[in-house]
Design a protein around this nucleic acid. Structure first.
Length: 283
DNA sequence: AATGCTGCCAACCGCCCCAGC
DNA sequence: GGCTGGGGCGGTTGGCAGCAT
């Protein structure tokens, strides 16, 4: 059985660079009818293109909110950090950078940043350092402004992130916790929680393996507003489900993670829950 | 001026996911 | 549960512009 024929391989379907007239037809149609139904769009719009091609042209080039021009230094740093965090999830990265498309970021990475980082530019260490204030402004907890506020802005397929992963024992060292504290967790919560943590963490690593070593990245999400703790947590990407494990962990007293006192962690659950439970899709 | 090389980027391709049936 | 089609994504390609020789 051969491969399914591409929709763009049909007879009479034009390929290659778009003409000004085609652009005009596409814009005109979308202005009138809105986006979506890409399969029928070419016929209705009078275009000899496949729907996918129309969609791509619109998303990557014709949308009015696309920012043209060079990638700024801030954007570049943000791309590098997001790439450290997400890997080649260009659409997700693009979702955090208003006005830039996944294609543009992907191209920029492949042609410019990958070489820069390979050449050992100082920027290559960005992923290891603390998040700057300007970056914190850009890495938004919750739906990106462009996704939530403006309907006409690109909506990438954001993955829901409802369950931070509690690290298993062998990973607590990466959180600057000593083993005594880890053992305290086991004492407080029983061995089952550790098993669960291991399982979740392993699943997480399977799903989100960005590093060669398979250790994933710690995600410094910063402090939720109005909370008194600031743990580095691992965020499970693309999974739905209860945050029960995380909430159970919240009962631990006097656990210090990365120098942050979690004594008041219970009071913070409410604040965390604002994004643990929210049904909005966000990174 | 002609030619070759390099980098950029728009567009294509193939695969995957998911909703609808 | 299986099938199908639409939509979305990441990887790759090919054309073009700019630069060097």
């Amino acid at each position: 059985m051969g491969r399914r024929r591409s929709c763009c391989s049909e007879d009479g379907i034009k390929k290659g660079a778009w003409t000004a007239l085609e652009d005009k037809l596409l814009i005109s149609y979308i202005k009138t009818h809105g986006v979506g139904k890409w399969g029928n769009l070419p016929k209705k719009a009078g275009l000899k293109r496949c729907g996918k091609s129309c969609r791509l042209r619109w998303l990557n080039y014709l949308r009015p909110d696309i920012k043209r021009g060079n990638i700024t230094q801030d954007e570049e740093e943000l791309i590098i950090r997001l790439h450290n965090l997400l890997g080649n999830k260009w659409s997700l990265i693009a979702g955090r950078i208003p006005g830039r498309t996944d294609n543009e970021i992907k191209n920029y990475w492949n042609t410019t940043l990958a070489k820069k980082l390979k050449a050992g530019s100082p920027k290559s260490s960005i992923g290891n350092g603390p998040i700057s204030q300007s970056e914190e402004k850009n890495i938004v907890i919750g739906p990106a402004p462009s996704q939530k506020v403006q309907d006409n802005v690109i909506r990438t397929k954001a993955l829901r992130c409802t369950r931070p992963t509690v690290l298993p024992l062998h990973m607590f060292s990466s959180l600057d916790c000593n083993n005594d504290q880890a053992m305290d967790i086991q004492t407080h919560m029983g061995p089952q929680i550790i098993d669960d943590a291991l399982k979740f963490s392993n699943d997480f690593m399977m799903d989100f393996n960005m590093e060669e070593e398979g250790e994933g990245e710690q995600v410094n999400m910063g402090c939720p507003p109005n909370t008194s703790f600031c743990p580095e947590i691992q965020v499970e990407n693309g999974m739905t489900g209860a945050s029960s494990l995380f909430e159970e962990a919240m009962v631990i007293d006097n656990l210090v993670v990365n120098g942050c006192d979690l004594q008041n962690i219970g009071s913070a659950v409410g604040s965390w829950s604002c994004f643990l439970d929210v049904e909005e899709e966000w990174l």
